[in-house]
């Protein structure tokens, strides 16, 4: 084991001892070509994490898109992420949904489960508990559509695993803040 070196310059700033937090950021951008590339490129260039990412135009008239990014980092890093993203010319606003404590987060998943007999019945029973809808079925498979917090979907896929889970497609986290105001 090599001994831990002492941080000696900005290159070596080590925040490992600081706790990492998970944050959901809503980024409102002008929907112009390459805008997603700018945001994503910034994350990779500066060594920030992306746990999930969703994007779509939300206001056609204003050409506004909403990018939702779930990221992790130390408090210092998260502060930098927000400032660096805001620096991009087409970015109108960055909203820290997690920090606002008024955020609602949802994710949608399509889950394919194949099986016969008892496991198939069990899968359907669990789906009902999770309020997942069956959107396609064959004699040997179901496709479930499930919406909820990411943890709920994790739980659901965990339970489906022994029952013949084939594949999962997830949207990533969407978010919005409670109350009457925008942003």
């Amino acid at each position: 084991m090599s001994k831990e070196p002492i941080p000696a310059s900005a290159y070596d700033m080590d925040h490992a001892e600081e706790a990492e937090e998970r944050r959901t950021l809503a980024i409102l951008v002008d929907n112009e070509p390459g805008v997603l590339g700018r945001v994503v490129g910034l994350f990779s260039a500066r060594g920030y994490n992306i746990e999930s990412l969703t994007v779509a135009e939300v206001d056609r008239g204003k050409h506004r898109s909403r990018i939702t990014i779930v990221t992790t980092g130390t408090a210092h890093m998260l502060e930098q992420i927000e400032a660096q993203v805001l620096r991009l010319v087409p970015v109108a606003a960055v909203i820290d949904i997690t920090k606002s404590k008024r955020g609602i987060e949802r994710e949608l998943a399509l889950v394919k489960v194949a099986g016969k007999g008892e496991p198939r019945v069990e899968a359907l029973r669990i789906a009902e508990i999770f309020r997942a809808r069956v959107i396609d079925t064959t004699n040997e498979s179901f496709i479930f559509e499930i919406t909820g917090a990411s943890e709920k979907i994790d739980q659901f896929t965990d339970l489906m695993e022994p029952l013949g889970l084939v594949e999962v497609s997830r949207t990533g986290v969407l978010s919005i803040r409670r109350g009457k105001d925008a942003g």
């Binding site: 002492i6 941080p7 000696a8 310059s9 900005a10 290159y11 070596d12 700033m13």
Partner: peptide, 11 residues
């Protein structure tokens, strides 16, 4: 901007 050529050892 507190560049590393300026700050030297940050800590």
């Amino acid at each position: 901007r507190f560049d590393d050529r300026v700050t030297g050892k940050v800590s």
